[in-house]
């Protein structure tokens, strides 16, 4: 019962949904679609069946540039010792605590 393989797999798209006006779009998953129009249509059907969104973005997965997880330490750890970037670093007189 071997199925005939399809000639070409539909490309992969990443889906971002804005759950309500005023909030940002958030990544919620991915899907396969032949073209942008179909990707938007399928994103609606797959990811917003219960009014989870008011706006959908789709982008081809192969178009996303991401940082390398292997570089995580080299990339992000230098920020760990820059505590002076946080407001809590600065001790102010009590009367000014809520500056």
């Amino acid at each position: 019962m071997n199925a005939v393989p399809s000639k070409e797999e539909w490309p992969l798209w990443e889906v971002f949904v804005r759950s309500k006006a005023g909030l940002d779009h958030k990544h919620c998953g991915s899907l396969h679609a032949a073209d942008p129009q179909m990707a938007i249509q399928l994103a609606r059907d797959v990811y917003t069946r219960r009014q989870e969104g008011t706006s959908v973005w789709v982008v081809r997965s192969d178009q996303i540039v991401a940082s390398d997880p292997g570089d995580k330490a080299a990339y992000f750890d230098p920020m760990a010792d820059k505590i002076y970037r946080h407001p809590t670093f600065y001790e102010l007189p009590k009367s000014l605590d809520h500056m």
Partner: peptide
């Protein structure tokens, strides 16, 4: 069950291919 699943996949092959052909033509 498996027969129904395989049939659905095979019967849909031309639709998947047509959608890709359409997308290529469009781009």
């Amino acid at each position: 069950r498996l027969g129904a699943r395989v049939k659905a996949w095979e019967d849909g092959a031309w639709v998947r291919d047509a959608a890709m052909a359409h997308a290529h033509k469009h781009s």
